[in-house]
Amino acid sequence: MPDDLAEIYRSTFPALVRFLYRKVWDVERAEDLAQEAFARAVVHKPESVRGWLFVVAANMARDDARRAARERRHLTLLTSEPASAPAVDEAVHAEAERSRVRTALEQLTPRDREVLLLWDAGLSYDEIATQTGLARGAVGTTLARARRRLVEAFAAGERDEHIARG
């Protein structure tokens, strides 16, 4: 393996997992996909490795989500999804928060969400612009909108839950 790629692996792997996790919502799956993306980078030797990795990872996550959706459809007659693990209050709370953030993220447009997740994973505006095809000047505007919508959607979700609970 090329040394520079190994270095990028050390510095970028956690960010890539973080990025993928918000797409597949399963940390092991996210790690598998991140490793696969790096393994492909070894073969393809892209010029801009970091940007390339996120493009490939995003594609793999999308395919993964489609497959998961197909599998869910196959099983609709059969399944009762196992309930989430009963754990200490703290874990339950964290899980509830995570799920609320997930719901809020899902209310963003795909582009807003993508830009937000790429920024959160540590990509620069330039890298985000290259990857998404946005003009560089539009990245800040997109991020501003994405952040506002995320915060608003999360707050709305909390409100709804309070109302539902009475």
């Binding site: 996790y21 790690e31 964290a94 809020a104 959160d120």
Partner: peptide
């Protein structure tokens, strides 16, 4: 909020 939805911290596995 994004940090709330971050994956648990784990060691970086060996390079594939």
């Amino acid at each position: 909020l994004l940090a709330l939805a971050a994956p648990p911290a784990r060691d970086v596995p060996p390079f594939p």
